[in-house]
Design a protein around this nucleic acid. Sequence first.
DNA 1: GCTTGCAATGACAACGCTATCATTGCAGTG
DNA 2: CACTGCAATGATAGCGTTGTCATTGCAAGC
Lengths: 342, 342
Amino acid sequence: MAKQRQRLSDRKSKVTVSDVARLAQVSDSTVSRIMRNHGLIADATRVRVMEAVRALGYVPNRIAGSLASLDSQLVGVVIPSLSNIVFPEVLQGINAGLAGTNRQSVISVTDYDLDKEEVVVRNLLAWQPAAVLIAGSTHTDATRRMLDQSGIRIVEFMETDYPPVDVAVGLSHVAAGMVTARHLLARGYRRFGYVGYGGTIDVRARMRYDGFCTVLSEAGVTLEGEAMSDGQTSVGKGRAQTADLRARAPGVEVIVYSNDDMAVGGLFHCLSAGIRVPEDLALFGFNGLDIGRELPQPLSTIRSNRFNIGKRAVEVFLQDPIRPDRPSIIDTGFEVFEGATA
Amino acid sequence: MAKQRQRLSDRKSKVTVSDVARLAQVSDSTVSRIMRNHGLIADATRVRVMEAVRALGYVPNRIAGSLASLDSQLVGVVIPSLSNIVFPEVLQGINAGLAGTNRQSVISVTDYDLDKEEVVVRNLLAWQPAAVLIAGSTHTDATRRMLDQSGIRIVEFMETDYPPVDVAVGLSHVAAGMVTARHLLARGYRRFGYVGYGGTIDVRARMRYDGFCTVLSEAGVTLEGEAMSDGQTSVGKGRAQTADLRARAPGVEVIVYSNDDMAVGGLFHCLSAGIRVPEDLALFGFNGLDIGRELPQPLSTIRSNRFNIGKRAVEVFLQDPIRPDRPSIIDTGFEVFEGATA
DNA sequence: GCTTGCAATGACAACGCTATCATTGCAGTG
DNA sequence: CACTGCAATGATAGCGTTGTCATTGCAAGC
């Protein structure tokens, strides 16, 4: 006699395909086919089965389904932070791209910690996702290896400055930094300040800074002052650091910020302190957030399109679910937004 | 002879427990035990197995694991939007609460559409989550029934104004609206305006509005003007609607906003138009966003703690994974933040 | 030497579904 | 009227784990 496990006893008497099949007087296969809209089914049968489904309140078990079909329909998403608004924006793009498919995104946050990223990626891969979308191209060796060996599509989004495992979708942050410097030099600014955050943790902010400094020094200009804060970006830090930098380097004509959050904080400081922008002090951000355009004077910045990055990242994978032989890069670009602060 | 399916052929030769077991010369059970840190294992065996795991690059398949153990370790999260910053804030709290457990959140977005919510909930439940955390208590009947019948813990967060299926964590938005009105009446304001958004879609904004109006009319005061915009909240809409309302109802002393985003937009309009705040026009928001505190003058508002709501929502479920017999409500409260704009 | 007791491991049937192949029944054909 | 073709359905072996129970081996106790 077969051993009977009593696992079901503690479960809330789950309804299974077999229950539905029994009630509708058909086989499990038929129920399965109907639930998935797959294969030929007589109308009468479909109606009868759907009635049984409703009567029993049957909800298919995707875990079992995924195991049986060897296809989880999950898409893993890895981002460094939820408090920096740009990542929720990317997530919106990802959701938009996923809408209409029956794929589910599973989101994990790393807090800009590469070791945590490694753990998170390992856990995600355990769910056998159909693809992984991950922010940035800087990972531990182990993470990179896991992503590579998974064989699934790996879309590294936000930046294109480093060679990706599979495909990168985003923009060159080094280039964005360089364009910022050239733009401001062309407008005649010569005395520069920089206000940033988390120099060691946010790789992309660092790349913009590096690109910016490179062009400055090529032009024989040196940064007259900089203020870097730790941890996450915030308007408050931008405000405080601006006050600080201004006190230490009063001759600075223009401050470049890690991003718009910080720059908005800078503008708030100027508004409070009666500093005229851009006459007394010019400000330049990065990202092109909505709020920048609604300020009393529009913030001069560089626009990157995060929603679009997320959407494109999904599209890449949907269009070609099989990883190509060679890595590729999709540049979503950026553009200078003139604004009125620099 | 047993039928042999060739499914494996098209798969990227997945490594399974059996592969590891064979290489390490132990049984599948032993490998499973070691991977889960469960049960007694001799040190030598553990070392040998872990070597095999590394050598093969074995990644456990959680789909199979979840099916076998009848426990998915997933927590479903349903939110209406990612573009309203308050929801990413709640997600941060949820992540914080989940940190250290081996549970994964799966996030779905409804775009404030109850029919979409129904679809989303159905799809989430198919993953056999250990709990569902869902924003708000307003659902279709079908959604409510599914949540109820799932038998798992259902935490409805953000609001406590309606009776929950299982447990609600948040604050009373009707009360928040009432407190706003009382606070402003107490400060002597009598000529009120209201600027809001998505009156029909954002139930909580609507409840605050209703609470606010109730108190006003009890005090014999009527709203002199209101401007409601469609769709999502934004700083830009707040700015535009403020200009509009100001033109239509110039006598208004104080404008109450659906939330801080809109109020910040209002302040920006005032700064641009040379309207003195609060002398010429007072402004009052809702949420207590960080940015409100960093403005040239701090925004008067009501603080709700979204991070805390998310964290508490998770804790409720972690502390008591079994649904209690009777629904309950956890009030995380709110407080008036005086600010300098009203 | 022969039990006991327990640490350590093994065997194997679920878990709920789907892919594959097999079968049925019936209309149309010659 | 047997024969073909196809729409519709059924039977069943996995999918890769884990829970349960069974077994092994060895030290301690008498």
